[in-house]
């Protein structure tokens, strides 16, 4: 099947440098979906599933874009020159480019820490979002990053480093990722409460715990989320958390549900006349 897919690799001119993108364009386009990569190691841990999801979307007539943020993956630039605003501007630019040539709905796939990149401008431009175990709490995310450095010191493979050589502040080095303290601080400040309320059609994929119940912290996140995105369907996933495993996981239940939800979003937007 993959041999028949109209698949295109390109360098797209982003705000500050070229972004490496993979687009899959079906003959008849019903909608568009942009996969927002999560941050740092999570990008590597989730890429294989985003690729499968994009292939599934193609079969539904949904054009997909999978791209690397500035300074990450195969895109131009260095992570040390990245800022939260730059990454957000790159997303906005790509959405606006689609809107300039298509009236079809635009969806985002937002996995884990990719949720920290959302702002009101991005959300106001799109028609639906598929969230997979989203992390909206920047403080919690950066705390885990910091722990990575602490745990790294424990296994003597990395160390946290600060130096004041840059005009925009010190440099943070965590598990081989070097970025500015400014970016660290920007991410730490991100929170769902900073977003306005949006009546978008959304899906939230939540991975079940062994007790098949939402943990108190996830319940709190879900409640906060519903204030911003009241039209959200929650879908429980009965797979291992594929991004956490030291072995490649296929996430079959998630991919099956993901395909169903992409289809639902397309139909829902058709029904509302978009």
């Amino acid at each position: 099947m993959s041999a028949m897919i109209n698949y295109h690799a390109e360098f797209y001119q982003g705000t500050k440098g070229q972004l490496f993108r993979l687009t899959r364009t079906p003959r008849k386009i019903n909608a568009h979906i942009i996969y927002i990569a999560p941050l740092f190691e999570q990008a590597n841990q989730t890429r294989h599933i985003s690729t499968r999801s994009a292939t599934n979307a193609y079969s539904l007539g949904v054009q997909s874009i999978v791209f690397d943020h500035f300074g990450t993956g195969d895109s131009a630039g260095e992570l040390i020159d990245a800022t939260l605003m730059l990454w957000q501007q790159d997303i906005v630019k790509q959405i606006r480019a689609i809107k300039a040539s298509s009236l079809k709905p635009i969806f985002l796939s937002v996995v884990l820490s990719a949720a920290l990149l959302l702002n009101d401008e991005i959300v106001s431009l799109i028609d639906g979002v598929l969230f997979a175990q989203p992390e909206f709490n920047g403080k919690s995310f950066t705390r885990q990053l910091k722990r990575m450095a602490v745990a790294g010191n424990l296994v003597k493979s990395t160390e946290i480093m600060s130096d004041g050589n840059r005009a925009d502040g010190s440099i943070v080095d965590i598990a081989g990722y070097q970025f500015t303290q400014q970016l660290y601080n920007e991410l730490a400040k991100q929170n769902i409460n900073k977003l306005s309320e949006f009546n978008l059609v959304c899906t939230w994929f939540e991975w079940l715990t062994p007790g098949n119940e939402l943990t108190p912290s996830r319940v709190k996140k879900k409640q906060d989320f519903q204030l911003t995105f009241p039209q959200t369907k929650f879908v429980m996933i009965d797979d291992d958390k594929y991004w956490q495993s030291t072995e490649l996981q296929l996430a079959q239940h998630f991919l099956q549900q993901d395909q169903q939800e992409i289809s639902r979003l397309v139909k829902k937007n058709k029904a509302t006349g978009q």
């Binding site: 190691e41 722990r147 990575m148 745990a151 493979s157 990395t158 598990a175 062994p210 108190p216 956490q244």
Partner: peptide, 20 residues
């Protein structure tokens, strides 16, 4: 071998989540 810094941090996140 697999119990590296990434696994430790993942484990901590899950412990905090599941044990509150």
């Amino acid at each position: 071998a697999e119990f590296d810094s990434m696994a430790i941090v993942t484990l901590i996140g899950e412990i905090e989540d599941q044990f509150d």
